[in-house]
């Protein structure tokens, strides 16, 4: 009877937190799926076209509407790349093969395979040196309290506020005075200057997220600073190390501007430079360029597949804690 005295909530004021209806759930799922497909298409379409067109003849590439799946798949473009070192193309022989019929070889084509080698050397060296310098630097800044620690962290980051193009001239003078023009070291040195600050930053955030007590425990257990890093922190920070490997590899693999400035001959030219040179030839063969593009993306894709399980956690590691 007492309950009657309590104020009764009007039906409208009550909110019900019921599970959504079946229709609602289906609709929500469908919308999400459509959004995901659109997004994927946006990301993957250029890649798909690159791969598909590398298997098409020049004639098929320009057909309207474009063929997403090659009607007459051909390996001629790839064959041309590997045949290139045996053939030299000059102004006189430029019409020896017809671009429209496939198998066309640009005059700089023979530089492509050496360029892949150069890119590989530069990128691997940059990755290695990034780890060698970045890991100890980041550990010191994350775990050792010393005077000027904050200043060094900000100093390192501040170097990245300057756009690369503003550094081209100083870099050029520096490299020329060292006598390193047209030498792979010119690229390794300048790429390090660009990548190490980011690598250190990614690693600092990750090391900082690992508890300080681990550092103390390891040192009391008998580790020197260096052993603490190699035996305790490094095994625990594989995701961020992988992020650094990928980041520094991709940056060096794709870099164009500095490579254009410092390399002059096939001796030191990297992949982006040689691929770009195909567009300024006697004739432009899209199918050949696309085949070269497919070769160019293979190493990064292999790398990504290799480290796939670390990638997501590594790339977000620096994001949460700044």
């Amino acid at each position: 009877m007492k309950a009657a005295a309590l104020p009764v909530a009007s039906a409208r004021s009550v909110q019900h937190y019921r599970a959504p209806s079946r229709l609602g759930r289906v609709a929500r799922g469908a919308l999400l799926a459509i959004a995901a497909i659109l997004f994927l298409a946006y990301i993957l379409a250029p890649m798909a076209w690159l791969v598909s067109s590398s298997f098409q003849s020049e004639h098929e590439i320009v057909s309207k509407p474009p063929h997403w799946l090659p009607h007459e798949p051909t390996l001629e473009n790839f064959a041309a790349i590997f045949a290139a070192p045996d053939q030299s193309v000059t102004y006189e022989t430029r019409r020896a093969t017809d671009p429209a019929s496939g198998g066309f070889i640009p005059s700089t084509a023979k530089n492509l395979l050496p360029a892949i080698g150069n890119s590989m050397i530069v990128a691997s060296a940059v990755v290695l040196l990034n780890l060698l310098v970045g890991v100890p630097a980041a550990y010191a800044m994350a775990k050792i309290r010393f005077r000027g620690r904050q200043v060094s962290i900000y100093g390192i980051l501040a170097t990245r506020v300057i756009p690369d193009i503003a550094l081209v001239v100083p870099f050029f003078l520096f490299i020329r005075n060292l006598g390193l023009l047209d030498n792979l070291w010119s690229l390794i040195i300048t790429y390090l200057a660009i990548t190490i600050p980011f690598s250190v930053f990614i690693l600092i955030s990750y090391f900082e997220s690992l508890p300080d007590d681990l550092d103390k425990a390891a040192r009391v257990d008998g580790c020197s600073r260096w052993q603490t890093l190699t035996k305790v922190y490094l095994p625990l920070s594989l995701p961020s190390v992988v992020a650094v490997v990928l980041f520094s590899f991709l940056s060096s693999w794709n870099e164009f501007l500095l490579a254009l400035m410092f390399t002059q001959t096939p001796k030191s030219q990297t992949l982006p430079i040689v691929v770009a040179s195909f567009t300024s030839d006697f004739t432009i063969s899209f199918s050949f360029i696309n085949a070269a593009g497919v070769l160019a993306i293979i190493p990064p894709v292999v790398l990504a597949l290799l480290f796939e399980r670390y990638i997501v956690s590594g790339l977000t590691a620096g994001a949460v804690k700044g």
Binding site: P211, L214, K216, A217, R219, V220, D221, V232
Partner: peptide
């Protein structure tokens, strides 16, 4: 340095090596 002192330590957070 700590690794040259004959001390052992137990931490509030345990500080076990997760790996």
């Amino acid at each position: 340095p700590p690794h040259r002192r004959d001390v052992a330590m137990v931490f509030q957070s345990y500080a076990l090596y997760p790996h």
